[in-house]
Structure formats: C-alpha cells, structure tokens
Design a protein around this nucleic acid. Sequence first.
RNA 1: GUCCCAGUAGCUCAGCAGGAUAGAGCAACAGCCUUCUAAGCUGUGGGUCGGGAGUUCGAAUCUCUCCUGGGACGCCA
Length: 558
Amino acid sequence: MLKQLLVTSLKEVLGKEFSQETLNRLIEIPKHETLGDLAFPCFELAKHYRKAPHVIAQEIACKLDHSKYERVEAVGGYVNVFLKKKTIAWETIKKVLLEKEAYGSKVHTEKKTMTIDLSSPNIAKPFSMGHLRSTVIGNSIALIAEKQGYDVVRINHLGDWGTQFGKLIVAYKKWGKKENVIKNPIKELFNLYVKFHMEAEEDASLNDHGREAFKQLESGNEDALFLWKWFRDESLKEFMKIYNQLGIRFDSYHGEAFYNDKMDAVVTMLEERGLLVESDGAQVVELENLPPCLITKRDGTTLYATRDLAAAIYRQQTYQFNKSVYVVGNEQSLHFKQLFAVLEKMGFEWRKGMAHVPFGMILKDGKKMSTRKGKVVLLEDVIKEAIQLALKNIEAKNPTLIDKEETAKQVGIGAIIFHDLKNYRLNDIEFSLADMLRFEGETGPYVQYTHARTSTLLKKGKFQIRDNQQLSFLDKEAWPIIKLLQNFPQVINQAMEEYDPSKIAKYLLDVSKAFNHYYATVKILNEEEGNRLAIVYSVKVVLKEGLRLLGIASPEEM
RNA sequence: GUCCCAGUAGCUCAGCAGGAUAGAGCAACAGCCUUCUAAGCUGUGGGUCGGGAGUUCGAAUCUCUCCUGGGACGCCA
C-alpha cells in the first residue's frame, strides 16, 4: 500500500510525537495529479509546534528521505509527494504477473465459515426485480468472502411457509383448475393469489378461512400438504431456470417449512429461560428499546420470527459459522433487530457474528411495487430483452464473432447485474428498463468491452509471461492505471468490510476509463510492446477477476 | 405519533473515519475511425451540495433543528 511508504518516511522525520495511525489518517490522495501522488496536510501539526502550517510543510519537505521519491514539494501547508513511477509500476506488475487471478486474495490460517442468506423468493409468486437485488448482491458478497478466505455456505431461505399458503389453498379450491396450474404454474398460482386478495377486500371472512387452512397445513393435514408440495416443486423448477441463467448456485434450499418440526424446541427454550410473556393471547418476548417480538399467535401457530430463530440456531449447530449474513430488504430492518435481540437474550455468544445486510427497494413511479395487486415486472422478461438487444449489437458491430449467442447472454446478463450492483445497496432504485438495457457509459458491457480489448491486444501481440521480464519503460499515460491496479486488494477489503459490492463495480469503471484513455492515446502494439503488454495483461487480470466477484462473465471478444 | 433510510448538475449517481478549484455517466452541443474492436476517446455548457444554526484554521462530509420523499411499527413475510 502506497500510503505506508509515506507513513514510514514521516515517522523518521517526526519521531515519536505522532503515531502511525495518526499519520495514516492524515495522509490523503490529492484530487489533481499536479499535486502529486500522496499529500500530507500540516494544519493539525500547527497547534502542536506553534508554527504556521506552510512553515512546517517546508521543513518536512526538506527533511524527507528524497531517495525514495521522485519529487517532494511544499505547497500552502501541504507536503506533496511524487512517487518513483517506474519502481512502483514494476513492483505492481510483477506481483500481478506472479499471482495472476489470485491477486488480491487472502488466505486465512484457521478455517472461517460464513453463511449467507440470499435470494429467498416466495413460492407461488413470480421472481420479481426485488428478489433480483437480494440474489445478485448476496452472490457478490459470497464471492468476495470466498476471495477473502471464507468457506461460504449459500442458503436460499425459500418463502415456502406461512398464512399465504393457507390463502392459496383456499383460492385454489375455490377457483383453481388443475390443468391451468400444470400449464403455467407460477402465473396461474399468482393469479389465484391476486384474486384472493381482491375478493378478501369484499369478504373479510376469506382471511379467516385462509388462516384456518394454514393451521391445517401446519398440523400435517395430508390434503393441504399435497397441494403445498405440488406448488413448491413447480415454483422451484421455474426459479432454477433463472438461477442457471444468472450462473448462481446454492448449498441449501432449506426454506421456512424446513424448520416446521424445530419450532417447538425454540418455544421450549424461550420458556425455560423465562422469556415468554403472554399478551392478548399471543406469546411474545419483550425487548429493551424495541417493540416486543411475537413468537406464537393467538391460535397457537408460529410466525416469521419463530422460524428465523429456529433457522439461526440450526445454522450455528450445522455450520458453526463465524459470520452469518442476511441479504434482505431494508423494510425488514426491525425484524432483524428483534431477531438478534432475542438471540442475545437467549445468551448465544455467536449472535455477534450475525448481520443484516439491507438494501433499498425497486420503486415504480416513486412507490413500492405491490405484488398483491399483480403489478410486477418479471425478471424473466427483462433477461430475455437484454439478451436480444446484446445479440442485435453483436450482429451490427462484430458480425463474424464465433459464439454470438453465448456472448449475447454474457453481455445482456452482465448489463442487468452490473446495473444493480453499481450503486450503493441502500439506495432505492426507480425501475427503468431503458437504464438496465443501456450498454454504453458506466455499464457492465463497458467494462466487458474493455476486457475484450485487452484480450485482443494480448493475442495480437502474442504476449507471454517470461521469467526475465523487466519493465524498462513506462508511458506517463499508464501511471494512473498502475495506481489503480496497485489498489485492487484494498478495494476488495473495503467491499468485504462494508458488504458493499458497489465499491468493486465503481473501481472497475475507474480501471476501464483509465485503460481506455491509455488505449486512445498510446499505440500499444509498437516498439515498446513488451512493456506495454505486461500492463495490458495486468489490467485484464484485474478486470476479469473484478467482474467475477460481481458474478459477471468476461467474454474474450464481443 | 414513534423509529429507520435518503435529499449533491435537467436525469441517474460518486464523493461523507472534515482538507487544496465539488466529480462521473446519461441527455444536449462540437470534434475524432486509410493505423491495436467507435459497446470507445476528446472538448463545451450546466451546481445557493434540501433550508437554517453550531463545532473547527477548514464542513457536501460531524452535531442540532426544520422541510420534503420513502419505509417500518403485534397476530403477513
């Protein structure tokens, strides 16, 4: 890390009076390249030394070990440091050539396990844009964690239990037709669900029937169970098509229903610890500074929180996780606060490794999309359109490409995933098909295109890694690229710490921009191509690896 | 009513463990393909960083307050 270099030098000059941490905090990266590569502001030192900042800056600038730097300047209270570009460049490139796609990886000496709860769509409902967010954000966090040395367990906590299935069973018995469900399962089941809610607005007793049907389901009624299992199987088949397209796999599909026979134990545990309190016929756990957490309803049936408690305990027993994260929408923040608080009260130390990773909603006309009213945009359709558009682009721009269909798939899906990951996850997103299908500017295809350019260059230049490789020459236009490449490991670190894939997406855009600028200014396949191709190769490695961490493919040509 | 998240260019967003002239993409306009893929590159215009107060040598960034939008708040998940 470049900062560390200056920290060490400053320590030599300033002695013990300032700690490494303080110096590290103060050092910054100037906004303009004319101000150097690293800068040290002296305003805080002014009080300590009782001297004007610009005087201190002058003094430090004179005393720094100049042999390490190309140039050191004092400007208006700042010490600006210019690094030895060729030295840093070669160190960076050498590391990438050596480590290849392992560049930026971390290895833990002891085994560390992370479970991640992601995607978790509801059975019998279409896979909506909202579930896409949990799926792609979660998948990227899983990939980043693996890169950081974790064993990751991906859990698809299917929404396959609850009163809604009672409602669905009632709706199916009242209005459903077997052959329609067989023909188009999700669509037909969803229509029944929507119809149920419309009818229930007129006739409130339907809701009671729904609850009654769920109670039968939960107590093992065979008729109800048969229907439930059928709905679940058909739905999962449809979801698998989407996961295959997105290139996402799971280690567990244990949904809520899986915890059905593990709930009594949870209720017993709560009772044993004297945490259960009766309130209006329901059993609750009272919490400090939070609304109480409902454990069982008046009719004795369980709730979402009960199932999540059972799931958390099961996961700790099964996987002994160090970290357990839940990639679930922001609107459920309170639920997770309550869940963690109850586990805390139960005395489970391991609850400290748990985290809710929330994300913003997909809005339509500034408002939440309502599944109940049947107004949803289907991911399936969006994917189809994206691939078609990508194919059209390939036909126009690169008609001789060998595997057009596969490339179109990678580009179309890359556009959709990148669009979702490039912004901070807590921001709400206004749904816009046009934005998702954009392939120019700050998009996935832009990064993929840049990667394809590096591939072509390496192929044409017949680049090979040699043992005696040296970097004897560096274009000044390549310097910004070097600084970025050098920073890749820190970016991955930060993305992991903050569970924030957008850090990587933004970084890839920066690398792409820097490279495309270089590409436009410098003729790469030329007399110095040995040096230049080593940089191109490093860019390719970082772009490909970065895209992989987002769950996006890197076509060699497009 | 209480709590949580957000408000930066016409639009979408970066920047927010305080620092030097507030950045990008899209859209608009003007250029660049007889030379490595133009899904690219270069340039121009565009801002009271929601309002106000405070802390500080210094605030888009920290604190308070108000305004606006969204969400959550016991028998849905």
